[in-house]
Write a protein that binds this DNA or RNA. Structure first.
Lengths: 133, 133
DNA sequence: GCATTCAGATTACATCTGTAGTCATCAACT
DNA sequence: AGTTGATGACTACAGATGTAATCTGAATGC
């Protein structure tokens, strides 16, 4: 029997690192963008060089998190990974890892740390009411 | 003016990695414990060798997250970093990074992902009521 | 007292991450 | 057409992490 055509496995979306996330944020804000445009937005904030952004972009492309489209001799980058998809899976990871999958203790934790604003409370109340309907 | 006595800086508790966290979990569950006892609890679950646990323990000691106390020729390990301290700071990190410091969108996210159980909802309602008093 | 054994300490090593520098290429300007 | 500048590709390199194997010294069994 022939060797199965491997190397096509996806094994779930690869995780993206914190630095890579900064690049994604820029792309979620506006896309497509060139490497230079992204750098203009994030390089000063993070004190990065353009080269750093380019490296992060190629890693993101390798991870299938952003797509490239040629535009003359440069590339336009577009996010493939959606922001909600990312924040959702990271949030679930945290809840699973730290709170055994239960969200309530996380909430209690944030309350104790006084990390909940008045607005948060109001929004969450509204959300709860909505979920209960 | 003399050079400030540096090298005593703490610069905040060092972050602990995911593998290290597994060891901390065991110690939070019960402490003090020996390296072997910890391994008995986590090695099978994570498919680790005792050597791995020992490495992680020394890194945790270096990071000031656990304390050692000699017991004959081996050590008893005790957590220095409290569980709440850790989960609290990790939770805040996530909220800051992904949701601009606002907790409400995190809950919206979890709700959308159907990561909220009935119990969670009830507990959160109770907690909200409590916070509002 | 000497061999065995059981710690912790030291060393190993591949991968991932942060952060760039350098190379090769292609278009554009003079 | 040759030089210059802009771009992505390739290379670099240190520190963190995952995952151990090996070394070393002390306790213990004869």
């Amino acid at each position: 029997m022939p060797v199965a055509s491997d190397e096509t496995r996806d094994s779930g979306p690869e995780r993206i690192s914190e630095a890579e996330y900064a690049v994604m944020e820029s792309l979620w804000e506006r896309s497509p963008q060139t490497a230079l445009e992204i750098c203009e937005e994030v390089c000063s904030r993070r004190d990065w060089s353009l080269a750093t952004v380019k490296t992060l972009l190629s890693r993101l492309v390798a991870k299938n998190a952003v797509a490239t489209e040629p535009d003359g001799r440069r590339f336009l980058y577009t996010p493939l990974l959606e922001k909600d998809e990312y924040t959702g899976s990271e949030s679930r990871r945290l809840v699973d890892r730290l709170f055994g999958g239960r969200a309530a203790p996380l909430f209690a934790q944030l309350a104790e740390a006084e990390a909940l604003t008045e607005d948060d409370l109001a929004e969450m109340e509204a959300l709860l009411k909505e979920l209960r309907k």
